[in-house]
C-alpha cells in the first residue's frame, strides 16, 4: 500500500515537468497568435515601424527580431574565442593552483546577478560610448544621439555574461581529450602550442560547439542587463543606435501595454520562444550525438 502510493507520488512529481513544458508552450502560442491575425502577419513580422501608442499605431517588429539575431551572433562570435582560450589556459597551461583559482573566479562571474552587470554597464560602458558617439558623429545630421545606450554596450555586456558558460563547457570537453593524443603529438615533435591548436582543440570540437550553442541560448534570453544598457528605441541594429531586443521589448513595455499593443508583445514573446526552442533542439541533438560517440 505505502509502496504503491509512494510510487504514484514520485511518478506525478516527474510528470509535472512534462505538464509545465506543455502548458508554457500552449500559453505562448495561444497568447502570441491573436496579434498575428489582428495586425497581419507581414506587417507585424516584417514591418519596420514601431509606433504602438501613436494615433495610427504601427506594430512592425522586424528591427527587434534582427537586433536580437545580430546582438546574439556578434556577442557569441566574440565571446567564444575568448572563452575557448581561457578554457585552454585552465586545462593545458595553468598549474593546479592557478587553475583552481581562475576556475573559482569564473564560477563567481556566472553567479553574479544580471542586474549588477546591467548597473555596471550603465555606469561604465554607457558614458564611454557617449564619448565615442560624440567623436564619431560630430556634425552628423542623421544620427540620433543616444547618450551612450546602444547596441555596442549591449553586445559587450552579453559577451561578458556568456563567458562563464563557454569557459566551463569548453574546459570540460578539453579535459576529456585523451592524454594519448597529446603525447603522440608531442612525440612527433609538435610544440605545445601546435598540439593545443592542431590536436586538442579539434578533438574537443563538439564540446566547444555545444558551449557556443549554450551561449547563444543565454544571450538570446538575457533581458534585464541589456535592457539597462541598450536604450529604449526600436532601430536598425547599428553599433551606435539605441536598440530594442526581443527580451528588452518585453521588459520595458509589458508593464503598461494595453489592448493590441499587449497582444503584439505576446507575439514578441512567441518569436523569442520559437528561437529558444530551436536552440534547445539543436543543443539536445548535439548532446545525443556526443553521447553516441563515447
Amino acid at each position: 500500500m505505502v509502496e504503491q502510493t509512494a510510487k504514484s507520488i514520485v511518478t506525478i512529481c516527474a510528470v509535472v515537468t512534462i505538464f509545465a513544458v506543455c502548458s508554457i508552450t500552449a500559453y505562448m502560442v495561444m497568447k502570441g497568435t491573436p496579434a498575428l491575425k489582428n495586425v497581419g502577419v507581414s506587417s507585424l513580422l516584417f514591418g519596420t515601424s514601431w509606433k504602438p501608442t501613436a494615433a495610427e499605431p504601427a506594430y512592425g517588429i522586424l528591427y527587434i527580431i534582427i537586433t536580437s539575431i545580430v546582438g546574439t551572433s556578434v556577442s557569441v562570435l566574440v565571446g567564444v574565442p575568448i572563452g575557448l582560450l581561457s578554457a585552454v589556459f585552465l586545462t593545458e597551461v595553468a598549474g593546479k593552483k592557478t587553475s583552481a583559482f581562475i576556475g573559482a573566479a569564473v564560477e563567481l562571474l556566472a553567479a553574479i546577478p544580471s542586474v549588477i552587470y546591467g548597473l555596471l554597464g550603465m555606469m561604465l560602458l554607457n558614458p564611454l560610448m557617449y564619448k565615442w558617439e560624440k567623436i564619431f558623429f560630430a556634425g552628423s545630421k542623421t544620427h540620433q544621439v543616444t547618450g551612450g545606450s546602444n547596441l555596442l554596450s549591449a553586445i559587450i555586456v552579453l559577451m561578458i555574461m556568456i563567458l562563464p558558460t563557454v569557459i566551463n563547457v569548453s574546459a570540460t570537453s578539453i579535459k576529456a581529450v585523451s592524454k594519448d593524443l597529446r603525447a603522440a603529438s608531442l612525440a612527433l615533435g609538435a610544440s605545445k602550442m601546435q598540439t593545443i591548436f592542431r590536436v586538442v582543440i579539434p578533438a574537443a570540437k563538439s564540446g566547444i560547439m555545444t558551449g557556443a550553442v549554450l551561449g547563444v541560448g543565454r544571450a538570446l534570453g538575457e533581458a534585464m542587463a541589456i535592457n539597462m544598457v541598450a536604450g529604449g528605441a526600436v532601430n536598425l541594429p547599428l553599433p551606435f543606435n539605441s536598440v530594442r531586443f526581443l527580451t528588452t521589448q518585453l521588459v520595458s513595455e509589458m508593464g503598461y501595454a494595453q489592448g493590441l499593443h499587449r497582444q503584439v508583445l505576446f507575439t514578441v514573446g512567441l518569436v523569442l520562444y520559437i528561437f529558444i526552442m530551436i536552440v534547445n533542439l539543436v543543443l539536445q541533438k548535439m548532446r545525443r550525438e556526443a553521447g553516441a560517440d563515447e
Partner: peptide
C-alpha cells in the same frame, strides 16, 4: 521527462515571467 527537463532548463527567465504572469 528528460526531454522536458532539458527544455525547461533552457527556457530563459523572461519567458517564465510571461507565463507566470499569464497563468
Amino acid at each position: 521527462i528528460e526531454f522536458a527537463t532539458e527544455t525547461l532548463s533552457g527556457i530563459p527567465s523572461i519567458i517564465f515571467g510571461l507565463f507566470g504572469m499569464m497563468f
